[in-house]
């Protein structure tokens, strides 16, 4: 089976006019404008197989959304190649648009003054979905997202979380084969984030759809994406398994211990780097290869509880970008 998504040396430059503030500079800019080329995406190549769930990571302004928009056909690439389901996205062929969806956490497609059920009906007509299939999909999605009676309330009266659930439903009624999700959980509370995550996973497994997700919530990525693509300043800096990335950037583990009585700081810090210390609780950071020895030594202490975890993904990403910037400087 051919890859679902392929990019080769994909680039997008924005031409941005720049001028100093003030009236004089404004007048000068009328006649002599200076432009700056911003390389939002500077030669990105990757391929994604059908059914994969891939996290697309990078700091703000790294070029994630620009890449997604090029893949969804909203932006024309400056150069390079993008193919999605063997279509050239920028041509926006009807058959192509019927097989993809782009959900942006900060944009909406629901008709503002009407209940979501009306948007669903409109999409049924626009995407030419068979009534039987439409009802079936709608029932299935409604159940997974617990939409219930929400679909009959005007969209403007829904809470952010309720609206996002309806947005997801509207975006998936035509059963797209490729899902571009740009910050789908932005602004949602923890339990709703979890609902959205498990829904995306269920949809992916049920329909074998390919999913690309960008998110600043590392929990989203950790829960959903076995593979991550990391870009910074428009360039690809990592493409591979999430676990391997963590291994490579932060080859250390965190040991959290709870103690029945206080233990001296010096005893603990001899076993690893002490990250947090309270009288009866401590967090230690140790190299992976020293983990066994440290745990064995800790067993000798008055332990109540001990757990070992990878460092938080946020820390991993911060270290990765810091190392990247240092390398470039």
């Amino acid at each position: 089976m051919p890859s679902a998504i392929v990019t080769r040396d994909l680039r997008k430059n924005y031409r941005v006019a720049s001028r100093a503030p003030g009236l004089k500079a404004a007048a000068r800019a009328l006649f002599n404008r200076t432009y700056k080329d911003v390389h939002a995406v500077a030669g990105v190549s990757f391929s994604i197989e059908p059914g994969e769930r891939v996290g697309f990571l990078g700091p703000n302004g790294a070029g994630k959304t620009t890449t997604l928009k090029m893949l969804a056909g909203l932006l024309h690439p400056t150069s390079g190649e993008a193919r999605v389901l063997d279509y050239e996205p920028r041509r926006r062929a009807t058959d192509f648009l019927k097989q993809i969806t782009l959900v942006m956490g900060n944009k909406q497609q629901l008709l503002w003054d009407l209940p979501p059920a009306e948007t669903f009906a409109l999409n049924r007509a626009i995407y030419e979905i068979e009534p039987r299939l439409f009802n079936e999909t709608l029932a299935e999605i409604s159940q997974l997202l617990e939409l219930g009676d929400l679909v009959n309330k005007p969209a403007r009266q829904l809470s952010l979380g309720e609206r996002m659930k309806c947005e997801l439903c509207a975006a998936l009624l035509h059963r797209p084969k490729v899902l571009f999700l740009d910050e789908p959980t932005i602004g949602l509370d923890v339990s709703l984030q979890a609902t959205v995550r498990s829904f995306i996973r269920a949809y992916n497994e049920r329909f074998g759809a390919t999913v690309i997700l960008t998110s600043h919530y590392m929990d989203d990525v950790a829960a959903l994406c076995p593979r991550v693509i990391v870009i910074d300043r428009g360039a690809l800096i990592y493409d591979g398994a999430l676990t391997e990335l963590v291994q490579r950037v932060r080859p250390d583990k965190r040991i959290t211990v709870r103690l029945s009585r206080p233990v001296e700081k010096i005893t603990l810090s001899s076993l690893g780097e002490l990250v947090e210390h309270e009288p009866t609780r401590a967090v230690l950071q140790v190299k992976s290869n020293a983990l066994q020895a440290s745990v064995a030594a800790l067993m000798a202490l008055p332990l109540v509880d001990l757990s070992v975890e990878d460092p938080p993904l946020e820390d991993v990403m911060r270290d990765l970008f810091a190392a990247q910037r240092k390398g470039l400087a």
Binding site: L74, R92, L97, L102, Y127
Partner: peptide, 12 residues
């Protein structure tokens, strides 16, 4: 406001 993006995504 970028809302045109949502229209461009639809097969209409």
């Amino acid at each position: 406001q970028g809302a045109l993006a949502m229209r461009l995504l639809r097969p209409l």
